[in-house]
Amino acid sequence: MVTELAAPFDMSLPSASKNLKVLESAGLIDRAVSGRVHRCTLDPERLREADGWLEFYRDFWHGTLESLARFVEEDEPDPGKDAAPTRATKNKPRQRP
């Protein structure tokens, strides 16, 4: 019930209701109305899809930042890892395309 769902949050019943409407319009919850009582049910399949969609972009950005790290770290080797860092390696020209 909406009152139960709103209870743990520091928000009014109308704003809880508004949030639920967004979730409902997004297909993440189902609502059954019986008189004045609205019962909301999670749709786990839709939540899984939501997570899958976010996961795609999360992987995209993680992978892209990994690539960026490889690019700039190759360019400027970490002297701590390399036993023989020389001025020559530090001053080598930037990578060219």
């Binding site: 967004v22 319009s25 997004a26 297909g27 939501a50 969609w53 976010l54 972009y57 999360r58 950005w61 993680h62 930042l65 990994e66 960026l68 790290a69 700039v72 770290e73 360019d75 400027e76 970490d78």
Partner: peptide
């Protein structure tokens, strides 16, 4: 009816030696 309000946000961080 969901399009105007429903959005996602994503935060990704990485520490890089540079």
């Amino acid at each position: 009816n969901a399009q105007s309000e429903a959005t996602l946000t994503l935060l990704v961080r990485k520490t890089i030696k540079a």
